[in-house]
Amino acid sequence: MSTPLTPPAPEPEREQSASEVLGAALGGAARRAGLDPATSGATHQVVWSAIGGVRGILESVLPSLAFVILFTIRPEPLILSLGVSVGLAAVFTAIRLLQKSPPSAAIGGLVAAAAAAGLALFTGRGADNFVPGLITNAVYGTAMLVSALIGWSLIGLAVGFLMGEGTAWRKDRRKRRAFLWLGVAWAALFFARLAVQLPLYLANEVAVLGTLKLIMGLPLFAPLIAVTWLVVRALYPRAPQAEQPPQS
């Protein structure tokens, strides 16, 4: 009498490593921003998508611009310029929610604007409205530089996830070198912002600080996005599509 076969025990699921989890998070964020090297698209279209189009530009520029203009015209009461800045961020968030579009960018901007305004109101210094931005540049610049120098570029992790190769890019000398220099380039952008803006913050030059923050924002961000996109597309060229046979 034959004994019934016992089905093999299922293999335990492999736990994701920290690099895979981080790569998935970074890659997901890049994909939501329209930066997916696996898809086709002209460079200018990719950059336009990454900055959010006209709406993204307005959400990024108008709150800070309104604060700078109003603070320059009338520094006191401080709550006036801060209130208008936060109010504009809230309007953009409400519009996204009403239109049922992804509100993450606007909500992020609203939270950042509210936190910065709260700090400035607490200290009574208009320059403190820019403290979160200074901290962000320092953190992002350090993370980009350190990760690139130790061979675990954050850009490489994101691209590896998007292209479905995980961390296999680390075995390719050409890719490792490219992601190293891309990481250094992004770190240089963040540290350049910090080097210019921190002395102005310490000198309490609010209007100049706000103006240079705008100038060193999207005008520098967009070209570097374009360079990053072109380098990644060169590292991962699309396979040529098979020609379709002519229909009779």
Rank of each mutant, 00 (worst) to 15 (best):
E11Q: 14
Y140V: 12
S60L: 11
A38V: 09
G151D: 07
I69S: 07
I215R: 10
G126E: 11
R176G: 14
F92M: 12
L62Y: 09
G23V: 09
A94L: 14
G28Y: 14
G164I: 12
S64Q: 11
I95L: 12
A9V: 10
P10Y: 10
A38C: 08
I225P: 00
N129Q: 07
A143C: 03
V46I: 15
F179S: 01
A89S: 13
W186L: 05
A18E: 14
L182A: 04
L35F: 15
R31H: 09
A106N: 04
A188C: 09
A242C: 10
A30Q: 05
L119R: 00
P223M: 00
R74P: 04
L230D: 05
L22A: 14
L35R: 08
T211N: 01
K213T: 13
Q197N: 09
Q244G: 07
R233P: 06
L119A: 01
L198G: 04
E243F: 03
A195G: 12
V91H: 08
L62K: 08
L82W: 05
M163W: 05
N204A: 13
S2R: 07
R233F: 03
I95R: 08
V206F: 02
A29W: 15
G156L: 06
E205Y: 06
D36N: 14
A116R: 04
G41L: 03
A105G: 02
E205K: 09
I51T: 05
A9R: 13
V196L: 14
F161N: 15
A114N: 06
A185Q: 01
T136M: 11
Q16H: 13
V231D: 00
L218M: 07
L154E: 00
E205C: 00
L157M: 10
V68P: 01
P63T: 06
T72I: 05
I79C: 07
